[in-house]
Design a protein around this nucleic acid. Structure first.
Lengths: 217, 217
DNA sequence: GTATATTTTTAGATTAGCCTAAAAAATAAT
DNA sequence: ATTATTTTTTAGGCTAATCTAAAAATATAC
């Protein structure tokens, strides 16, 4: 059983490690938690003792299987609550985070199952992030390049192919970065250029560009 | 600003004092909070410093105006959440208390206003208890426990004391829920058990049970 | 490859909330 | 009205989570 504070640290570690794929340094974590490195060291020892992370001095921390599962439960709760706030209570998608940060710590598996059912078992939250299922499994969606999308498609930018620096600069200019909402408005047959909505503004992109933006449903 | 623990103490004081109409003793409070008298004395000092209660040594504590208002905000949240859990998520009315105990501490005035709106501005919660408005005003109707009623009394169940889950299950079984018609058929002198009519069927209840059913005329 | 800078850890305090044991005040009993 | 009992408070300690300041380990620079 984790305390509220421990739960928050674990979640931060999970995110900073990209879901457990790399080690997290003490200072990074201190920054993320708005606290001091010394406090982080203390907490790291506690979380190690509870076997949700492994810890090597002066090297960093890694999430264990158990830790991942616990982190995903919190993330599931966070994203279900965000969905509730937007879909049912009429919050704007950018004002839900702080409240969801509190709600995610409510401890009642039954409540979460009921909430999930009430929301119609949503797959993604209002930001487009996937909602882990009740086993803690996160269904990572296949990333599709924009040029293969149908007109009308709505989703979120998952990644961009970062081969060319000029391309990245251009993508940055039009606001095409991971996490941003995207919608396909139109497709020109003869040159395969596209008209898309990035966040809230319309842009025309060439086939070349469209091949380099990866999205998820 | 009160901590979670302070909020729970204040709420208990509010209830034990019958909404601020009498002083609460240290041991009473210790009992209610499942803690020791010494801890209560400590907390009393903190709550006095924050001016939500007044405190006279060896006499007891009283809620201040400010304290009442803060307690009522928590009670409002508790009862709105209980309503949500029953009305929207399909919880049974006797399984909501523990979850609502957690949810009542979520701090977001906007959330509560939105929730209130979503629920259609309910006046009472699933136990029949009145929901304070957003100014902290509570419309109280005099509620009398069944054990104090005369034979022949007819009325309506207004609320049940929602402390014990086993009791709530029992009450649910005999159909004793808010809104239901009730009539006192008889009273046994030697053990103070009673025979009552709940909606349409006769039941015998012990004194203990009769003390936990509150009715209005 | 030694010196300097950065990062991380230890050491020692602090605060909130709780505890036990003992002292003090209030209440009850004779 | 003293004594006995109950209630409440004080005294002193414990744990979780935080802090500052200093020491230790690692990384960087010349």
């Amino acid at each position: 059983m984790l305390s509220l504070t421990e739960e928050n640290y674990l979640k931060a570690i999970y995110h900073l490690s990209d879901g457990g794929s790399k080690a997290v340094l003490t200072n990074e974590l201190a920054e993320a938690m708005s606290t001091k490195a010394a406090s982080v060291t203390d907490m790291i020892k506690k979380l190690s003792a509870k076997e949700v992370i492994t810890y090597e001095k002066y090297y960093g921390v890694n999430v264990t299987i158990k830790g991942k599962s616990e982190a995903l439960i919190v993330i599931r709760k966070h994203r279900l609550w965000e969905t509730f706030l937007v879909e049912k209570l009429g919050f704007a998608w950018d004002e839900v985070h702080d409240v969801a940060e509190q709600l995610e710590h409510i401890n009642s598996p039954r409540l979460i199952e009921k909430l999930d059912e009430f929301l119609g078992y949503p797959k993604v939250d209002p930001h487009g992030d996937p909602i882990p299922d009740n086993k803690g499994k996160i269904k990572l969606q296949p990333q599709v390049p924009v040029d293969q999308l149908q007109v009308g498609f709505q989703g979120k930018i998952a990644a961009v192919k970062d081969s060319d620096s000029n391309l990245l600069k251009y993508l940055d200019k039009i606001g095409a970065k991971p996490g941003v909402k995207i919608k396909v408005l139109g497709k020109e047959e003869y040159d395969e250029s596209m008209e898309i909505l990035i966040e809230d503004h319309r842009v025309f992109i060439s086939k070349e560009v469209s091949q380099n933006i990866l999205v998820v449903g």
